[in-house]
């Protein structure tokens, strides 16, 4: 216990001993975290809104024009037997025509001459599915059902959304990696200065028989403390920036859905503290290098 408190005391002293460079490290760390954090928040909100596009999770299955009641019932049974289907809602061609008339109410004259007997539509099912990733398979399976004339799925939209989300993820990973490297480089130099200013003490400790852990602990803690301070400051700054941005976006575009910062907090905290503690601890260990060698 005493050793740990000693190590913390040394770590705090180290931070203040290298005051300016510690400040620079924290500043760079905060900047990087804000870049990563802002990008992550934007990416998450884009994904959140893209979910709406794919969340319709619906495919229209049109039956043959001459499908009788028995065919309709059989096709419905076969659709519901498929793994990825949650429901199959029947829409008769009469209801379909009514829907279309309502949808194009401004062009009512187009439908005036169409009687039930001359209805050009066919019966259909609105098939609700569960997993968007398996929609291609479902599309194929629906087309194989006897009595099905046409299947309208949103494969193109799903593919676009998927590639968009993948693209955002790749950029996010590269961006995070780049910022992590920058943070680590800065922290390595900070801790190196700290180690250099205490090199004589380290030599004495080695001769007295201090273990590597004993020697390294204050420096690793110093790196971790820089990380914690940076992550905490970045978290609150991000909160401020996010509230300003969401206020602006909501005022300009009502249609856009946005997460609240409270909803994002676990993600932001994980990313910020993950990056900063990783760079702090690993950066310190790299800085110590030969100094802790026996």
């Amino acid at each position: 216990m005493r050793r740990l408190s000693d190590a913390f005391a040394q770590a705090f002293k180290g931070m203040f001993r290298n005051g300016l460079i510690t400040f620079v490290s924290i500043f760079v760390l905060i900047s990087c975290l804000l870049f990563v954090g802002s990008f992550a928040l934007i990416a998450l909100n884009v994904a959140y809104n893209l979910e709406d596009v794919t969340d319709l999770n619906e495919i229209e299955v049109f039956l043959d024009f001459d499908a009788d009641d028995e065919t309709v019932a059989r096709v419905q049974r076969e659709i519901l037997r498929l793994g990825n289907v949650s429901d199959a809602i029947y829409v008769s061609k009469e209801d379909g025509l009514d829907d279309m008339t309502g949808e194009f109410a401004d062009y009512g004259y187009l439908f005036e001459d169409i009687s039930d007997e001359e209805n050009p539509l066919s019966d259909k099912f609105r098939v609700l599915y569960i997993d968007n990733d398996k929609v291609t398979t479902l599309d194929y399976e629906l087309k194989q059902i006897d009595g099905v004339r046409k299947v309208n799925s949103r494969l193109d939209i799903a593919a676009t959304v998927d590639s968009l989300q993948n693209g955002i993820s790749v950029i996010f990973v590269w961006f995070t990696a780049l910022c992590t490297v920058v943070c680590m480089f800065v922290i390595i130099n900070t801790i190196k200065l700290s180690v250099y200013s205490r090199r004589d003490e380290i030599t004495i400790m080695r001769y007295i028989g201090a273990s590597r852990t004993y020697i390294a602990a204050p420096f690793v803690l110093e790196g971790a403390l820089i990380g914690v301070v940076g992550a905490t400051a970045a978290f609150f700054l991000e909160k401020l920036i996010y509230s300003l941005l969401t206020g602006f976006v909501t005022a300009q575009m009502n249609i856009v859905k946005l997460y609240t910062y409270a909803e994002m907090t676990p993600t932001v905290l994980t990313v910020f503290f993950g990056i900063s503690l990783f760079t702090g601890v690993v950066g310190s260990l790299i800085s110590l290098g030969k100094y802790v060698e026996a």
């Binding site: 004589d200 003490e201 030599t203 004495i204 080695r206 001769y207 007295i208 028989g209 201090a210 273990s211 590597r212 060698e293 026996a294």
Partner: peptide
């Protein structure tokens, strides 16, 4: 082995010309 050096050094007392005090 290198990992045993700290423990070994605790059994040795060392005095240097330049004292090496904190």
């Amino acid at each position: 082995r290198a990992s045993r050096i700290p423990k070994y050094r605790r059994r040795i007392g060392v005095v240097f010309q330049d004292f090496r005090l904190f």
